[in-house]
């Protein structure tokens, strides 16, 4: 273990967990209301970032306006997916619907390639790359306090991502619309019997998932650049949702932090072999947790009655 670098990697890892949590939130939103595991979430995220890039760089709009426009577009895209790809499949076996999202992910990828090309893009800088924050920790190494250096980008992406998750969480918890969405997710027939318009609710879930994906895509693209491979970040979000529990919003934060932390920890290792496991760490953590708690850390234990 490289002790001097450990605090740095721990904090960096935790902060990186923020955008992971936000990405996972998109998956949870869809799963909560429809029981569909959405394999196209990564492509929604990619498209959100591409929309933003297009408005800001190609069309020359101010960055804030570009982000707002991209959010609107991705919400519409979400609505559209529900209306034209998924609603016609109502009543089909769940597996077919999940496979449909897999097909959608390929289709969206193809559209991204067609409209935006596959080149690496210069995504606009949102946070200054200069002047990273320097934080002096209480830990001493070789008689000197350990100082960690945090890029502005990392810190603010974390703050925005976690705020995003909290806002959506509060929406679900405290608003009538959120209550309707929680109800609709539990039992579609029952929800219809009390007059909930479940298809509209599903549409809103997909629109929200598009919005969340775009926010995540923008945050990730501004730190790591933008090309078609951006969509693979959901691979790290899969373990986050399974860890947190598929329908738990707070679970995404805890899952995101845990996965981020695990990646930070192995990166601090002095053995290159262990350092190199950082990519697969999310899955290792996932396996361990699922063996102990199959419903995830915050998943609902199904309440069944005799």
């Amino acid at each position: 273990m490289n002790w001097q670098l450990l605090p740095q990697f721990v904090v960096t890892g935790l902060l990186a967990g923020g955008p992971l949590a936000l990405t996972a939130l998109g998956l949870v939103l869809i799963f909560k209301s429809t029981y569909i595991f959405n394999f196209a979430q990564g492509q929604l995220l990619l498209l959100g970032a591409l929309f933003t890039w297009w408005f800001a760089v190609e069309a020359g709009f101010p960055l804030w306006l570009s982000i707002v426009l991209a959010l609107v577009f991705s919400a519409l895209l979400g609505f559209g997916i529900e209306r034209f790809a998924l609603r016609p499949m109502t009543g089909q076996p769940l597996l077919s619907i999940v496979l449909m999202t897999l097909g959608l992910s390929q289709a969206l990828h193809g559209l991204a390639l067609l409209f935006f090309g596959g080149a690496q893009r210069n995504f606009p800088q949102i946070f200054s790359a200069a002047n990273p924050y320097k934080v002096t920790t209480p830990f001493i190494y070789n008689d000197n306090p350990i100082v960690i250096i945090l890029k502005q980008n990392l810190v603010w992406s974390f703050v925005i991502a976690i705020l995003g998750v909290l806002v959506i969480g509060a929406f679900f918890r405290y608003t009538h619309a959120g209550l309707a969405m929680r109800g609709a997710s539990e039992d579609h027939e029952l929800a219809q019997s009390i007059g909930l318009r479940i298809h509209r609710i599903f549409g809103v879930s997909w629109a929200l998932a598009g919005v969340v994906a775009t926010l995540g895509g923008v945050l990730l693209a501004t730190s790591s650049g933008l090309d078609l491979s951006l969509s693979v970040v959901v691979l790290a979000a899969f373990p986050v949702v399974l860890l947190g529990g598929l329908e738990s919003i707070p679970g995404t934060i805890v899952g995101g932090l845990l996965i981020g932390l695990s990646q930070g920890l192995v990166s601090a290792s002095s053995l290159s072999m262990i350092r190199n496991t950082s990519e697969i760490m999310p899955y290792v953590v996932l396996l361990i947790v699922l063996l102990i708690r199959p419903e995830g850390l915050f998943g609902q234990k199904r309440i069944e009655r005799i």
Binding site: L179, E186, D187, S193, I194
Partner: peptide
């Protein structure tokens, strides 16, 4: 017109009051 489904169908993970509020939500809860 309200059909109360057979088998005491509840939103099991929601509280009693949340269940009731959902019942009125079509009228603005």
């Amino acid at each position: 017109i309200i059909q109360v489904l057979e088998g005491r169908r509840l939103f099991r993970h929601l509280t009693v009051e949340e269940n009731l509020l959902l019942g009125g939500i079509a009228r603005g809860g």
